[in-house]
């Protein structure tokens, strides 16, 4: 049977696992108890940290694939495709991180946005990822494009650890790293920790499923471009032959 989509047995299983995990995250997250400090708004803990984590994972995958392309020994077109696919999904998750963070910030901080280190660096990360995707759209020789975008990916990766530790290095409105607060009076309650961990798993599975499909779509796009180019060359040759006669 001719395959008409980028689905396979593996992606189907991955997709189902992602859906189940996401459904469980939403169900658990929305039924979390109200807290003294944040009332019902702490329920956003099930999705926001998981989204942020996945944005970092996507950036790291993009950077590692870019390094694999830059190293002559491992250079292959597949790394460039993987880097581009992961960056697109990374931009989506970074945008969601900013949106859900702002939505959480409004009732708890009183503002949707403030130019503190964590928020500013997150916005910078999104700008760098969008810049990376724009670079990939500039018409150029595939090798030149891959080199340019690989350098841009490495630049974007620098922001990830700085952003992660920003809440400790600078005075920010954003709270400290949830998992780093180990004192008993500050540590997260078990149900919140469980919901957050499930959110991490669900978002990672969603990312993995999207990534597999995005890489396959990128391969199909590339194959179509090559076919279109070959057809155009063939047509020009045929025209030249007709004119020569």
């Amino acid at each position: 049977m001719k395959r008409t989509t980028t689905s396979s047995g593996l992606t189907m299983s991955l997709g189902i696992a992602a859906l189940v995990a996401l459904g469980a995250t939403v169900a658990l997250g929305l039924t979390l108890p109200k807290t003294v400090e944040q009332a019902e708004y702490s329920r956003l803990i099930a999705i926001h940290p998981g989204i942020a984590w996945t944005a970092y994972v996507a950036c790291t995958v993009t950077a590692l694939a870019s390094i694999a392309w830059l190293l002559p020994r491992t250079r292959a077109a597949k790394w460039d495709l993987l880097a581009g696919a992961s960056a697109e999904i990374g931009a989506l998750f970074t945008a969601l991180m900013l949106i859900t963070g702002s939505i959480w910030g409004r009732p708890t901080w009183g503002v949707y946005w403030v130019w503190d280190a964590r928020l500013t660096l997150s916005a910078l990360l999104l700008a760098l990822l969008l810049g990376y995707l724009a670079i990939r759209q500039v018409p150029a020789d595939p090798d030149v494009r891959a080199r340019r975008s690989a350098m841009a990916a490495l630049l974007a990766l620098v922001v990830v650890p700085v952003n992660h530790f920003a809440v400790e290095w600078w005075r920010t409105l954003h709270q400290g790293r949830s998992l780093a607060q180990l004192t008993p009076e500050d540590s997260l309650d078990g149900s919140f920790l469980g919901a957050m961990a499930l959110g991490f798993l669900a978002m990672t599975l969603v990312y993995a499923w999207l990534l597999v499909h995005r890489v396959r779509v990128a391969r199909l796009e590339e194959a179509r471009e090559e076919t279109a180019l070959a057809t155009a060359i063939e047509e020009r040759r045929a025209e030249a032959t007709t004119l020569a006669r």
């Binding site: 395959r3 008409t4 989509t5 980028t6 689905s7 996401l22 939403v26 997250g29 929305l30 019902e40 708004y41 329920r43 956003l44 999705i47 926001h48 989204i51 999904i89 989506l92 945008a95 969601l96 949106i99 859900t100 939505i103 959480w104 409004r106 009732p107 969603v206 499923w209 999207l210 499909h213 995005r214 396959r216 779509v217 199909l220 796009e221 179509r224």
Partner: peptide, 30 residues
């Protein structure tokens, strides 16, 4: 609770929209 629903709603709608776009594109190209 409006903010919580907005956070969950926007996240799920965005992820679903991107997944549908991806599957449609793959069907068109495949």
């Amino acid at each position: 609770m409006g903010y919580v629903w907005a956070g969950y709603g926007i996240t799920l709608a965005t992820l679903a929209a991107y997944a549908v776009w991806l599957l449609r594109r793959s069907r068109r190209l495949g």
